[in-house]
Amino acid sequence: MMRVLRTIPYTLIRMSRDYITLLLLLVVPIILITIFYFVLGDMKNQYGDLAFYDTAQLMTLVFQLFGGSIVIAYIQDDLFSARRQRILVAPMSLPLYALSISLCGMFFSIFLGFLLVLFTGVGLNVEWGNVFWVMYIIALLAVLSSLVSLILIFSVKNIKLAERLSDVYGIGCVVLAGLFFPIPDYPVITFINEYLNPLLLAANAISYAQSNLFSDAYIYMFRLGIGIVITFIIVYVLGRRKI
């Protein structure tokens, strides 16, 4: 236990020096959101708020969906390929180490989300509402995405395929939410967006809380929570077999 705890600072240092992840999950969203800041300008949405606020919030949440790629990369490197033999002979518990990497990955993803909230909130004056609630929802989303990535890496043998599938998960959520192009109103798609699409669940939880409709916000948060519980059970079952 203590030995695993001692690896955590090093895991965090490794993650913070992973410049490509930082570029993809921090610099790119900052650039994109800034461009949208100029593009949308003073445009209003149908409720009379700035349209840019919705876009900035959605973009921040979208990049949380891809946070799972951090967990995939580290679990793959440390437990399945490059360093597997070395980690196996290290005098520490393998499942605990896997848990610590996953938690660090989730924490790092949440931290990047926090930086984005900070940037949009302070730099671009986006109204987020209660920051603690927002961070809580972002944390739920990050945990869910990481769990989905864990399911993929435990159930698919080919690592390349697992990475592509996690991209499919992220991009699929974005497409279903109708951010690229309007999605037709089939009952199936409406159902998915209302109950399953984590991106919209998180966005709704935040926007309802902003307009003080906490009963609705709790419902969406609750649905996210159920998603986490279900994926966690699957990860637990699969992970016990793999590690």
Partner: peptide
Amino acid sequence: MLIFMSMISV
């Protein structure tokens, strides 16, 4: 590929 992706989106 990863850096390309970030550049293309911009």
